[in-house]
Design a protein around this nucleic acid. Structure first.
Length: 679
DNA sequence: GAGCACTGC
């Protein structure tokens, strides 16, 4: 049985999984447990969802799709699968539950197994990437959405399942929408398969419209609303819009601290820079007032786990904690004890632009759904308050929700998946929210250039099928495929693993530490660029015994490096066993590695124009080197390939590698005989 | 001399 130690991290396991103390846990039903002393059965009986049990079961008997609407805290995720089991649904096939995140998947399965007085892996199991607890006895199966999607490749009609529950469907992640689109197809072919969609209020009618089809004599789906168990949150708005929400946040914290009874504060800002700016300002206020009963802590993604832990400590009696956070606190991390929320009203979103094949990163007003989610963070322990730094009429005119990820993303991965599932005409696939046709066409072009599809749009053999099966971006897969032929697959696999994880470079909160961090990172830098630098970081990490001390010394994020190691192992096994890619090290032949990178990313090349700026080789678009890149401070190379293109103040290239012009015709003659003619 | 929110196979 998995034994979970509270708060601290077992070195040999995924820290995100082990740390189930409640800190990273965000599956709602059991976070705040007012009935801790009751027996498990009694607790289950007291959950808000209990009184809907018979209704849920009735609906499932009579409709193919049931949409369960309700706020968090009702017990949907843990109880519904058990009700189904208790009433015999497991005899018709597996009861599958998909979750958007790994941690929630594992936590939920553990909790349900515990409620049933069993070990996880008996009647209740889970599957996430790298971890699996299943047996022949398992009837209730928690899994991430990506796992279900992979299973579809082997079993397109999901014949082992009798019921599928899509949890947190309102989040509308890329994978959620893929799963929903494919399930719609399956439901029409398998009338004995049932689907339960668990969603927040705002999207309920959207789902019932999506799950209806002509020709059926009665409604396919039914909606059922479940009350939650949140405390009331009082909302406050500004009378006038504010010009500077960072400053307004700080002033609100300050006023609130003086007037309101004790209780911790959580403030949402859009990025690391704003968080640090607010942190400085607030510390100035504190210093000038000589108050010592306000403790301010930052929270954003690129902090180390150690630094992040500060937000979970309970302040001493009489001291109020203020957490200044990015969106990380909206869904991913639940901070205990919050009573007051301050919502700046903005969020940073990434949006794909097919014209330049780049992502743009923009700060936009939050959606109503987000504003409600943020406010909800104040009502978990007792009635709370939210201070919205915008007017009531601004709130009323907010969009109900952010466009789903599917409409804002690069599509080549999704297109490959669908092709592999035999969906020929992607443009006619029934997506819950169809992506812009331009995005699909741009993906098709990319895949054609990579030789993954032919002129008819069919997957090629072996490249297309390989790219569809490998669990990462098409260009990285192509690079892996070529590396087997070139003899540098060891190095390329490391680079892929490092590019898959969130940044391994930590960005500590204090200015002084940031400076030291920059100097420490220079230790790994090389003239060939960012990818070879990542290779160096990884190699050094392994050589130094993969210790936290090493990471601390060089300002690296242990959890991300650790994850890169896991990914690398999985990838190595996959490449070797399943795809028969020979595993070789080129033993320090950096040029070979760079050439191999070029073979994957040959469509993303820039050359140095005589005016001193870079231009994209195929379009002539002006590009700049991102300040995060190692090449930013080095003399400009003639030719570079980039893995990412980001539009902010300019079009920036990131994750760069220096290449030689002649490699292009060597590794991609089909592409470069014509494009180079333009110059 | 500019600045990346978050998640997943």
């Amino acid at each position: 049985m998995a034994t979970f130690k509270p708060k601290f991290i077992k070195p040999e396991t995924d820290d995100a999984i082990t740390d189930t103390s409640g800190s990273t846990e965000q599956s709602s039903a059991f976070v705040f447990n007012a009935n801790q002393n009751l027996g498990i059965e009694e607790q289950r009986e007291r959950l808000p969802i209990r009184k809907y049990r018979d209704q849920i079961l009735y609906c499932l008997e009579n409709y193919q799709v049931v949409i369960l609407v309700g706020e968090t805290g009702s017990g949907k995720s843990t109880q519904v699968p058990q009700y189904l089991y208790e009433f015999g649904w497991h005899t018709k096939g597996l009861i599958g539950i998909t979750e958007p995140r790994r941690v929630a998947t594992v936590t939920l399965a553990n909790r349900v197994a515990q409620e049933r007085g069993e070990l996880v892996g008996d009647s209740v199991g889970y599957v996430v990437r790298f971890l699996e607890r299943m047996s022949s006895e398992t009837k209730i199966k928690y899994m991430t959405e990506g796992i279900l999607l992979r299973e579809l490749l082997a079993d397109p009609l999901l014949t082992q399942y009798g019921v599928i529950i899509v949890d947190e469907a309102h989040e509308r992640n890329m994978l959620t929408d893929m799963v929903l689109g494919l399930l719609k197809k399956i439901l029409r072919k398998r009338s004995n398969l049932k689907l339960i969609i668990s969603s927040a209020t705002i999207d309920a009618s959207f789902f019932s419209e999506f799950f209806s089809w002509p020709g059926s004599t009665r409604d396919v789906s039914v909606k059922l609303s479940i009350e939650g168990r949140m405390h009331a949150v009082t909302k406050y708005y500004l009378n006038e819009p504010c010009a500077d929400y960072v400053r307004e946040t700080v002033e609100t914290v300050w006023k609130l601290h003086q007037k309101e009874p004790f209780g911790d504060i959580l403030a949402f800002l859009t990025g690391q820079e704003e968080v640090l700016e607010a942190l400085d300002l607030l510390r100035e206020y504190i210093a000038s007032s000589e108050l010592d009963n306000l403790k301010v802590v930052p929270m954003y993604g690129s902090m180390t786990s150690t630094d992040q832990l500060a937000v979970f400590f309970t302040p001493p009696k009489g001291v109020r904690k203020v957490v200044l956070a990015t969106n990380i606190a909206e869904t991913s991390i639940t901070i205990p004890g919050i009573v007051y929320v301050i919502d700046c009203g903005y969020v940073k979103v990434k949006c794909y632009n097919p014209a330049t094949c780049s992502d743009s990163l923009v700060i936009v007003p939050v959606s109503k759904a987000s504003a409600i989610q943020r406010a909800g963070r104040a009502g978990r322990v007792r009635p709370g308050k939210v201070y919205r730094l915008y007017t009531k009429s601004d709130f009323d005119s907010l969009a109900p929700r952010q466009p789903p990820e599917m409409r804002r993303s690069e599509m080549s991965g999704a297109v490959l998946q669908l092709k592999a599932l035999g969906i020929g005409n992607i443009l006619r696939f029934d997506f819950p929210s169809p992506p812009p046709a331009k995005n699909l066409l741009s993906a098709l072009e990319t895949l054609y250039a990579l030789d993954a599809i032919d002129e008819q749009g069919n997957l090629t053999k072996p490249v297309g099928f390989l790219l569809a099966e490998l669990p990462f971006a098409a260009m990285l897969s192509k690079m892996l495929y070529i590396s087997g032929q070139m003899g540098c697959s060891e190095e390329i696999i490391t680079i892929i693993a490092m590019l898959q994880v969130q940044s391994v470079y930590s960005r500590p909160p204090s200015a002084q530490a940031q400076q030291s961090g920059r100097i420490a990172h220079r230790h790994f830098e090389v003239a060939e660029g960012d990818l070879i630098t990542l290779l160096n970081v990884y190699t050094a990490f392994v050589e130094e015994g993969m210790t936290k001390e090493f990471c601390g010394q060089y300002y690296l994020i242990y959890r991300n490096l650790k994850r890169a190691c896991e990914l690398r192992e999985q990838l190595l096994a996959l490449a070797r066993k399943k795809y028969a890619i020979p595993i070789f090290s080129c033993k320090g032949d950096v040029e070979m590695v760079c050439k191999c990178i070029t073979a994957g990313f040959f469509t993303q090349v820039a050359y140095l124009h005589h005016s001193g700026v870079y231009r994209q080789i195929s379009s002539g678009t002006e590009l700049a080197i991102h300040p995060n890149s190692t090449l930013y401070t080095l003399p400009q190379a003639q030719y570079v390939v980039y893995c990412e293109l980001l539009q902010t103040t300019k079009l920036f290239m990131d994750q760069l590698t220096v290449i030689k012009k002649e490699w292009l015709t060597e590794v991609a003659p089909h592409y470069y005989h014509q494009t180079t003619m333009r110059h």
